Amino acid sequence: MPRYRRCRQPGCHAMVQLPNHYCAKHHEHEAEYLANRQRWARAHSKRYQHKYNNVTRYRNDTKSKQYQFYKTRIWSVLRQQALDRDHYVCQYCGQPNSKTVDHIVPIEYDQQRMASIDNLATICRECHRKKTQWEQSYYGTGQGNQLKSVPEVRKIFEIKKLFSK
Rank of each mutant, 00 (worst) to 15 (best):
I74D: 03
S149N: 15
D61E: 10
F163C: 03
T56A: 13
N54W: 02
E158I: 11
R6V: 07
E158R: 06
A82M: 01
R154K: 14
Q17E: 15
D61R: 08
S98D: 03
S164K: 07
Q111V: 02
V16C: 00
E32W: 03
K63G: 06
E158S: 04
R73W: 08
D86P: 02
N53L: 14
R113W: 08
T122M: 05
P2C: 01
Y22S: 07
W134Q: 05
K63A: 13
P10V: 01
D110K: 03
S149V: 13
Q146D: 13
R3L: 14
L18V: 06
P10L: 09
G142N: 02
A41I: 09
G94V: 02
S149F: 08
K160G: 00
D61T: 05
R37S: 04
R47I: 14
A121M: 05
D102L: 05
M1D: 12
P19N: 09
P96W: 13
Q49C: 07
Y4S: 05
C90L: 07
A43T: 08
Y138K: 11
R5K: 15
R113M: 07
D84W: 03
T141I: 14
G94Y: 06
R113V: 06
C7M: 09
R39G: 06
K161C: 05
Q112F: 00
F69N: 00
W40L: 14
S76P: 00
Q133M: 11
A24G: 10
L34P: 01
Y92E: 04
T141V: 15
R79F: 00
Y52H: 15
Y109H: 07
K51A: 13
Y48E: 12
Q143Y: 14
P151W: 00
E32M: 03
Y92F: 15
G140L: 07
F69E: 00
A121R: 14
K71G: 07
Y138G: 11
R125G: 13
R85V: 03
S45T: 10
Y4P: 05
R42A: 12
E32T: 10
C124P: 08
K71N: 12
A14N: 10
C23V: 02
V105N: 08
R39N: 11
R5N: 09
N119M: 04
I104L: 03
S45Q: 14
V153F: 02
I156C: 05
Y22W: 08
Y138E: 10
R39L: 13
R6D: 08
G142V: 01
V105R: 04
R79W: 01
E108P: 00
H29C: 03
Q95R: 15
T56Y: 11
N53Y: 12
I117T: 06
S45A: 10
F163T: 04
K161I: 05
R8V: 00
K46W: 11
Q49A: 13
G140H: 05
N119D: 08
A24K: 13
E158Q: 14
R73I: 06
R6Q: 13
I123K: 09
E158Y: 06
E30C: 12
Y70E: 09
C12V: 04
K46T: 12
R129H: 12
Q136D: 12
I123H: 06
H50W: 14
R113I: 05
V101T: 06
Q91N: 14
I117C: 00
C23I: 08
Q68Y: 07
N53V: 03
M15Q: 15
Y67M: 05
D61S: 05
Y22N: 08
